[in-house]
């Protein structure tokens, strides 16, 4: 925390003038764009286009979406060949089947095999399977990743610590339009008999983007 805390300072008791706790990011100087966000939100609420409850519910939904959702889908596919077939045929429906609210997203699952490795990117903006994995990491949105992974993907993967054998075909998938992608990584060896819950703990976010592989069983 960059801020000093003085017990005699009202604001630093952790409560705002209206009695709500401050968030850590609330006590920086107000910016032009933050001012615009507050103004838009107030105007849209006053005009009954949105309600505060809708905004709060949307933020809750966003916070509840995390890579663990995708990991559960991957682990199920590793355990259940019929589910895996359905996932590869229509990843949106297969995710819904597991109870994940992925909205209108058109999801395609890309299977890594012994000789094929898949990586996802959005070179035009930052399309990401956010309804399944949550918000994209900063590096995924960066110019560096977006521009380089389509031209020198093996070098980029090496920077993530992933070196692919020469014989492996690397397939890059640019989310240019209406599809979103998730990589179905290969199941780690030495996990025979594991439960879906235990398998899911091996599935990292990066392995579902394709810049990593699942953790090895320890």
């Amino acid at each position: 925390m960059p801020h000093d805390h003085h017990d005699d300072d009202f604001h630093h008791h952790g409560m705002s003038p209206s009695g709500h706790p401050y968030r850590a990011d609330d006590d920086h100087p107000l910016t032009y764009w933050q001012t615009m966000e507050i103004a838009m939100r107030e105007l849209l609420t006053e005009k009954a286009i949105l309600t505060p409850a809708e905004i709060a519910a949307q933020i809750d939904a966003m916070d509840s979406r995390e890579p663990a959702n995708g990991a559960a889908v991957v682990a199920r596919a590793w355990m259940d060949p019929e589910f895996k077939s359905r996932l590869l045929a229509n990843a949106s429906d297969a995710s819904r089947e597991m109870g994940f609210d992925i909205g209108p997203m058109h999801l395609i699952a890309l299977e890594n095999t012994a000789d094929t490795h898949n990586v996802i990117v959005c070179t035009l903006c930052s399309c990401y399977p956010r309804n399944l994995l949550g918000l994209p990491p900063d590096w995924y949105k960066s110019r560096s990743y977006r521009s380089r992974v389509v031209k020198e993907p093996r070098k980029v993967l090496a920077e993530f610590g992933l070196s692919l054998p020469k014989g492996t075909t690397l397939r890059i998938h640019d989310s240019t339009a209406d599809m979103r992608y998730i990589v179905l990584p290969a199941r780690p060896k030495g996990t025979d008999g594991w439960s879906a819950e235990d398998l899911a703990t091996l599935v990292t976010r990066d392995s579902m983007i394709g810049v990593g592989v699942p953790k090895s069983p320890s």
Partner: peptide
């Protein structure tokens, strides 16, 4: 964007601030 030369550094992750989450929510809802 694809294929253009840029600096090689990939940024670190950060947690999203409340105002950023609100912008995201406004985008999705509207």
């Amino acid at each position: 964007m694809g294929g253009q030369q840029t600096d090689a550094e990939l940024p670190e992750d950060h947690d999203f601030a409340l105002w950023e989450k609100r912008v995201d929510a406004l985008m999705v809802l509207c």
